[in-house]
């Protein structure tokens, strides 16, 4: 009984190590193939369209409402201590160094990451990945490398968009609706934000791009190993991809903030 459970535990650890190694190798192969010629321009453009351009609307909506709720919530908290003039600073700081990168990454994962996992997973179960191999095409280079480049381009730009729209959202609820002087609002925004905070936000966006794309592509690519063949397997991989991506976004967010400050 005891031996059996120890055995089971050991097996679990071994398989965990195995899949960790597999994920790291997958990541490294993909990174390496970014630099093998010829550059896969058409695919990078396609993926940037899919990850970036198609997310603009979602990001504007979420950014606007996040900013507005920050303005509203912040106003009623700050008014208690009589420093509602600092609203701009509060909104901008939380957005730029924290909420901007995190919310953007989560929204893009929900939109593009899930479909990456599903698409690659379906390619796996319908033997398209095998077909690539029979044509002497490296599937990791073909599928993963363009996506990671596109994500690294898209995430920071979308984050910047989210930040700007969010600051406008805060302006709408704080200044237009609650009547804080608009010059005071913009002034505190400009005064409070330091280059340091902006850099932090962008470093986070980069890290989230790499982490979520890797997890989503990896889950799709190895669908057959973890969830089996079939539609069920793909749906399971997609769910796992999104959940694990979101968890890692929060974990990495903490780690980066911890080392930055």
């Amino acid at each position: 009984m005891l031996i059996k459970s120890i055995e089971k535990f050991g097996k679990k650890i071994l398989s965990l190590l195995e899949s960790m190694g597999r994920a790291i190798l997958f990541f490294l192969t993909g990174m390496m193939h970014i630099f093998t010629l010829p550059v896969q321009f058409a695919k990078i453009i396609d993926q940037t369209w899919f990850i970036g351009s198609k997310s603009i609307f979602v990001i504007i909506l979420t950014g606007l409402f996040t900013g507005m709720v920050l303005g509203l919530q912040g106003y009623y908290s700050l008014v208690k201590v009589g420093s509602e003039a600092a609203l701009g600073a509060a909104v901008a700081l939380t957005l730029i160094s924290e909420l901007g990168p995190v919310f953007t990454a989560i929204m893009v994962t929900a939109r593009a990451g899930s479909s990456m996992a599903a698409e690659i997973g379906i390619m796996r179960i319908s033997e398209q990945i095998d077909a690539l191999k029979t044509m002497h095409i490296n599937p990791v280079r073909f599928l993963f490398s363009p996506r990671i480049i596109a994500a690294v381009i898209s995430f920071p730009l979308l984050t910047a968009l989210f930040d700007v729209v969010g600051i406008i959202g805060g302006f709408i609820s704080g200044s237009i609706m609650l009547g804080i002087n608009q010059h005071v609002y913009m002034d505190t925004v400009i005064q409070s934000i330091k280059i340091h905070d902006i850099n932090l936000g962008f470093y986070k966006a980069f890290a989230f791009a790499v982490v979520t794309t890797t997890i989503c592509c990896y889950r799709g690519y190895y669908t057959h190993l973890y969830s089996g063949f079939g539609a069920r397997g793909v749906s399971l991989s997609t769910t796992n991809a999104v959940v694990q991506s979101c968890i890692s976004i929060f974990v990495f967010d903490y780690i980066i903030t911890f080392f930055w400050i």
Binding site: S126, E127, Q128, D130, A131, T134, H136
Partner: peptide
């Protein structure tokens, strides 16, 4: 081995065409 594989081609059961 490479030159042998280059002579091969495989037609998959479900065609395995790329949708995109």
């Amino acid at each position: 081995r490479k030159s042998f594989y280059r002579k091969l081609s495989y037609m998959f059961q479900d065609n395995a065409l790329f949708d995109f």
